Amino acid sequence: MSTAVELQELLTDGEEINIVCHDNPDPDCLASALALGRIAADAGIDERHILYSGTITHQQNRAFVNLLDIDIQSFDPAAVEDRPADSLLAFVDHSIPGENNQVSPGTPVDIVIDHHPAEEVEARFVDRREELGAAATILAEYVRALDIEVDSTLATALMIAIRSDTIDFLRGATRAEYEAAGFLQEDVDEEMIRQISSPSVSGATLDAISTAIDNRMTRGAILISHVGRTSERDSLPQAVDYLARLEGVQTAIVFGIVEDTIHVSARSPDPRVHVGNLLRDAFEDVGSGGGHHDVAGGQIPLGIFADYTTDDEQLLDIVERVITDRLSVELNISEDEET
């Protein structure tokens, strides 16, 4: 029995499905959720919900949701933790309750479809392929195998997701990504792709990137910087993508405070550095972190710095020192290496 058919058979057991995105979902997560919803509809599930926590602030992500008119709802813990037996819970583009999502740890999960490294993933159905460049690749494979109708919205969403997570097939793309793109190409809306790929940039994002440029610290081929406090969480990956292009830099890490959480974003084409493991090891005792060897992110609740919240400038100084010190220990660099 094929993996796609196994999924289809599991879906026939349900009357409802709650597809939970990870916090602050990106195109890969959103498109995968959309595709799983279409597969669930084909299997006879009428009640389908795509749920998310956090915010959608990245300009491309907002354009993705608005222009493709994706129906997403704010996550309600009661909807998944007190669900009836015929209500299915699915994760796409993430794997474990409580890690990069607001589902309580230990909550039973029915379906997991992911391409990120993870340990001890438990669900009735698990398809996790670390070798792939995007979760959307797996969903495109299912859609094709199950002969699900592909309209321009679904094809465009999956294509953008694959392109986004592989940086236009320049990072982590495998033969499966090219095959999925070939399958989807006939039905994509090229004009929609152009609009979503070139959204306007907010002033807050530009300010955050500028701050990261000013605060950059390089030690050999490693760059660490911060954006201070920002309202635009997704300015961090945009800032680190920009700084990673600096000549001589092989590993770039940018952090910043968004509301009551410290967010960290990392990039590294250096095969000697696995930034997913680096962020996990650096922050697992105070928050969470992880990802691929070249792209990763982390979150640390600001509660550990609660004693310093009365003075924001002091808070920023403390956060900068603590986060930088933790990263320096994991990267095995010292202050006298700073340039």
Rank of each mutant, 00 (worst) to 15 (best):
A85N: 15
A134V: 04
P117S: 03
N101T: 08
D76K: 12
Y142A: 07
D76S: 09
Q102L: 13
V103M: 03
A135M: 02
V143D: 05
S164N: 11
P97G: 07
I113D: 03
D151Y: 05
V92C: 10
H94G: 02
E122R: 12
Q60S: 13
D86G: 10
P84Q: 12
D168M: 12
S152Q: 14
E149K: 08
I160T: 08
T166N: 06
G98C: 12
V65F: 07
P105W: 04
R144P: 07
L154M: 12
F125M: 07
D168G: 09
D165S: 07
D110K: 10
S104G: 10
R128P: 06
S87R: 13
D93L: 04
E122D: 11
E81C: 06
D151T: 12
A161Y: 00
D151E: 14
D114A: 02
I113T: 07
E149M: 10
D151K: 09
E99V: 13
G106Y: 03
F75W: 03
I148D: 08
L89S: 08
E149H: 11
L68T: 03
R129Y: 03
P108E: 06
A90I: 12
Q73C: 07
P97E: 11
H116Y: 05
I70E: 02
D76C: 04
A157M: 09
V126K: 05
L132I: 03
A140P: 05
D151L: 05
A161M: 07
A78D: 14
E141K: 13
Q102P: 00
I113N: 05
V65C: 04
L146G: 10
E130G: 14
A145D: 15
P108A: 08
H94A: 10
R163A: 13
L67F: 09
H115N: 04
D71M: 09
D127F: 10
R144V: 09
A134Q: 02
Q73F: 11
A63L: 11
D76N: 12
V109G: 00
E119N: 12
L88S: 06
R83D: 13
A123T: 01
L154K: 04
V121T: 12
D165G: 02
P105K: 04
L132Q: 01
A63P: 05
E119W: 03
T156I: 09
N100W: 03
R62V: 14
R144H: 14
F91N: 09
R163E: 14
H58T: 09
H116E: 05
A135I: 01
S104H: 09
Q102E: 12
N61D: 15
R144D: 14
D93F: 07
N66E: 15
L89M: 12
E119F: 00
E130S: 07
G98A: 10
I138Y: 02
T107I: 09
E120K: 14
E131C: 07
R124C: 00
R62K: 15
P84H: 14
E81Q: 15
S87Y: 10
V150K: 09
R163L: 15
A157E: 03
D114P: 02
T107Y: 05
P77L: 09
A85C: 10
I160M: 12
